[in-house]
């Protein structure tokens, strides 16, 4: 079983997102990037599958200029190989373009199971795993947990909210968007990552990507921040009344 894990880095939300207030453009080069949290889970799930079944785990990232550390970290955690897709990419490269690049690579280099984080914080132009599957015509599922191999089929859980889940089984190859790994992602110690940097190499694969449908993002802007709660005045009855209407506005009341 050959498993491919698609990973990407996203701006670190702990730090400020840097925006050119006038143009509404994100200043990618001024932000720090970290591995997408959901991708971390996908890597973990892959490694857990590997521990159960000796699968071979490859991690992949589109080379947007800052992915080496992320890939070495995955190797330090136990992935077998790491691949960097090279071409005309940078931090502002759209998800759609990344998905297309990955689809080209996978077409040439087949895998049985492709995992990735179900989403990322910056994927307004679509989630990568679903797009890769769509481009390749592969079956796929999102919001997946608990992936296990059963012969040549892959069993997994899909979550539907409100605690509802189903167990699904799929033929291979299949693309799964991981919601959470069975166990919290493991830690890669700094020393181990450093050691990987010395002892292993990232495979570089050149890919050319044709024009893809891109979104025209006019601007990014900050929502009006609260800073302090909006106080609801009145007695218990009045406050309850107001809370219920707030909940209704947000579809949080049942029925």
């Amino acid at each position: 079983m050959r498993i491919l894990v698609l990973t990407k880095s996203v701006p670190d939300l702990v730090e400020e997102l840097v925006l050119d207030e006038d143009s509404g453009e994100l200043l990618h080069d001024e932000m720090t990037y970290v591995p997408s949290e959901w991708d971390d889970h996908a890597v973990e799930e892959a490694l857990l599958i590997k521990e159960d079944s000796n699968a071979d785990v490859t991690v992949l990232a589109v080379d947007t200029g800052d992915v080496d550390n992320m890939l070495f970290t995955a190797l330090a955690k136990g992935a077998d190989r790491a691949i960097k897709l090279q071409g005309d990419f940078d931090l502002s490269t759209s998800n759609r373009k990344r998905a297309q690049a990955i689809a080209h690579y996978v077409k040439e280099n087949p895998y049985d199971l492709i995992l990735s984080g179900v989403q990322a914080i910056d994927d307004i132009d679509g989630q990568i795993p679903a797009m890769v599957a769509g481009l390749l015509g592969m079956p796929h599922a999102s919001v997946v947990t608990d992936v296990r191999l059963d012969g040549d089929r892959v069993h997994f859980h899909q979550e539907y909210g409100g605690g509802l889940q189903a167990e699904l089984a799929s033929q291979t190859p299949v693309v799964l968007g991981i919601q959470a790994a069975r166990k919290p992602p493991r830690y890669a110690s700094i020393a181990k990552v450093r050691q990987m940097m010395k002892s292993s190499v990232l495979e570089e694969v050149e890919v050319a990507v044709e024009e893809v449908p891109e979104l025209e993002i006019r601007r990014f802007f900050k929502p009006v921040a609260a800073g302090h709660a909006e106080m609801i005045d009145g007695d218990a009855e009045e406050v309850a009344e107001r809370i219920v209407s707030i909940l209704k506005e947000r579809n949080l009341v049942r029925g």
Binding site: P11, L13, L17, L19, G24, I121, D122, I124, P213, L215, E216, I217, R218, R219, F220, F221, K222, P223
Partner: peptide
């Protein structure tokens, strides 16, 4: 976008 930290205005093609 970005876990609600930013909003984006996107023109539908």
């Amino acid at each position: 976008a970005f876990a609600g930290k930013l909003l984006a205005e996107v023109a539908v093609p």
